[in-house]
Amino acid sequence: MRQRTMCPILTREWARSVCDNPWAAIQQSLPDRFELVDLSRVRFQSPEPRKPRCARSASPPRAFPARAGETVLLCALEIGSSDPEKFHVALVRIDGQLGAAWSVWNDSPAGENAAMRAAREGRAIVAFVRYAIGKQEDFPQLYATIRGPNSRAGIRRLECGDTARR
């Protein structure tokens, strides 16, 4: 019942689109959790809980992405798993020193491996930052970017949230 009163007062269209729709394209495209980071200051051996951490036993972290929009699997994720190569820390450079870090894994019902998943989610994070939470929202561009150029889905604005497909 709260959503009926809350959703219409949200000022950003992307927020209204996910407010009462767990299947919204934005929500499905982004990883469950990601952290925006300053790439010049980030350390992935940090003792802080809830931050993606490189496993100490893993090979040294790979180089950070060099170009905006580039995503890398940085290292194996520190997690209690019997397969140390199953989980990874992914890192995308959004712009300048702004990046995002999140966890990816190799098991996927869609047949994606960790690198494929990281690339797809990295593109979605970059689009979200550029077109949703920046100074000027561009919801049609955000939606077109996360849906992909070959998608037949269109946008129809509905009351509070749900982005319908035509």
Rank of each mutant, 00 (worst) to 15 (best):
M1H: 13
R2G: 08
Q3S: 08
T5S: 09
M6K: 10
M6G: 05
C7R: 00
P8D: 04
I9K: 12
I9P: 04
I9Q: 14
L10G: 00
T11I: 10
T11A: 09
E13R: 14
W14G: 00
W14H: 05
R16D: 01
S17T: 10
S17V: 03
V18D: 04
V18I: 15
C19M: 06
A24S: 15
Q28C: 08
Q28M: 15
L30H: 00
P31W: 00
P31N: 01
D32Q: 13
L36D: 02
V37A: 00
V37Y: 00
D38Q: 00
D38E: 02
D38F: 00
L39D: 00
S40K: 08
S40T: 11
R41P: 00
R43H: 12
E48Q: 11
E48M: 10
P49H: 06
R50E: 13
K51R: 15
K51Q: 12
A55P: 02
R56T: 08
S57D: 13
S57Y: 11
A58H: 01
P60T: 04
P60Y: 04
P61L: 07
R62P: 05
A63W: 10
P65A: 04
A68N: 11
G69H: 02
T71C: 02
L73A: 08
L73W: 07
L74V: 07
L74H: 05
L77W: 12
E78K: 12
I79P: 05
G80Y: 12
G80N: 13
S82D: 11
S82W: 14
S82C: 08
S82I: 14
D83K: 11
P84W: 01
E85Y: 14
V89T: 03
R93D: 02
Q97K: 10
Q97S: 12
Q97I: 12
V104R: 03
N106P: 05
S108I: 12
P109S: 09
P109G: 08
A110F: 14
A110C: 06
G111V: 02
G111P: 01
E112V: 03
A114M: 01
A114S: 05
A115K: 08
E121A: 05
G122S: 03
R123L: 08
A124V: 04
V126F: 09
A127Q: 04
F128T: 03
V129F: 05
R130I: 06
Y131N: 08
Y131W: 11
K135R: 14
Q136G: 06
Q136F: 14
Q136C: 06
E137R: 03
Q141L: 14
Y143F: 15
A144K: 14
G148E: 07
R152A: 10
G154L: 15
I155Y: 15
R156N: 09
L158P: 06
E159A: 12
A164Y: 13
R165H: 11
R166P: 15
